[in-house]
């Protein structure tokens, strides 16, 4: 190493912020993650200019896969305009100057927190999840040394016992989000804190799914067409959330994940699509829900 280099000025921020050496390190981890679906690959996560827990893992993964010609979509809680989604999108607009979109179908890379888009993803798309606690066994066993052994030995009795205790106490499984899944019959994986409603979308998805946990320094992946099965019992099969007789107040959609919106002090509420792009697309196609401003007009 030359002494001259020590005195040189630091270079300007690189494309997509990360330096090339960091990207290479992350890319190597991504390849291992793809080769062993559901296994958490340790990686030397860097400090990012946003706080740990606010998407640093997802941002590092996105920064390492993103190219000039990509079209990026960022969502949080299913919506493109939530504050942290806006903040992360602006980060990439500034550091990578890539094209941005809110339309699921147009995006080549989608970074998400807590949701999977309603629209089915395709083979040319990559979905990047922000993950706070990548270890599905962490709340049962806080020690990394122990959970690592459990994964090594496929020793997943503990998590089944936990789910079974739920059934014994409540008559059903009481886990509603971050619901653990079994990947290709080998690794129990945390799907990130998405509602269990989204779990079936992970199974044999056509898109590549990448998971980044910055603070916990782990990356894992699901290649397209991978078996992802939510844990359950024969007599208590896995079920997803349902909203019987509920339609989106804006677009009239049924069978989607809903946000509940409180309308007044009396607690009156309505339900709207959590996926903002899905809802807006439907509205633009002429589907209207009962509280949509255009609805009354239409009815007359």
């Amino acid at each position: 190493m030359s002494l001259d280099q020590l005195t040189n000025e630091a270079p300007a921020y690189n494309f997509a912020y990360l330096d090339e050496q960091t990207k290479r390190m992350i890319r190597r981890a991504i390849l291992k993650g793809i080769a062993v679906p559901g296994y958490q690959v340790p990686f030397a996560a860097r400090e990012m200019p946003m706080p740990y827990g606010w998407g640093t893992g997802g941002v590092q993964v996105t920064a390492s896969v993103l190219g000039e010609s990509d079209i990026l979509k960022v969502i949080d809680q299913g919506a493109d305009d939530t504050t942290n989604a806006v903040s992360i999108r602006n980060f990439f607009a500034k550091t990578a100057n890539v094209d941005l979109t809110t339309h699921t179908s147009e995006a080549t890379v989608i970074q998400t927190r807590h949701r999977i888009p309603e629209e089915e993803l395709q083979e040319h798309q990559t979905l990047v999840y922000q993950v706070p606690i990548p270890e599905p066994l962490r709340f049962l066993e806080p020690r990394e040394t122990e959970t690592r052994k459990m994964h090594a030995l496929s020793e997943y009795g503990l998590i089944h016992v936990k789910l079974y205790e739920d059934i014994a106490t409540h008559g059903h499984i009481a886990t509603t989000y971050a619901y653990p899944v079994m990947v290709e019959g080998r690794y129990v994986m945390d799907p990130s804190p998405t509602p269990k409603f989204d779990n079936p979308k992970m199974h044999k998805s056509k898109a590549l799914q990448l998971f980044g946990a910055g603070r916990e320094k782990r990356i894992y992946a699901l290649p397209p067409h991978t078996d992802v099965v939510s844990l359950d019992f024969e007599d208590h099969p896995f079920t997803i959330q349902e909203w019987p007789d509920t339609k989106c107040a804006m677009c009239g959609a049924e069978g989607v994940y809903f946000d509940e919106v409180i309308l007044d002090d009396a607690g009156n509420n309505m339900f709207v699509c959590s996926d903002s792009d899905y809802c807006e697309t439907r509205q633009s196609e002429g589907h209207l829900g009962p509280l949509n401003a255009d609805y009354k007009e239409r009815m007359q």
Partner: peptide, 19 residues
């Protein structure tokens, strides 16, 4: 062009590994 050629090459390798 280290940055972009690395990214394009990685994308091909990643896609190959994923499929």
């Amino acid at each position: 062009d280290l940055t972009h050629q690395s990214q394009q090459s990685f994308k091909a390798i990643m896609d190959a590994m994923a499929q």
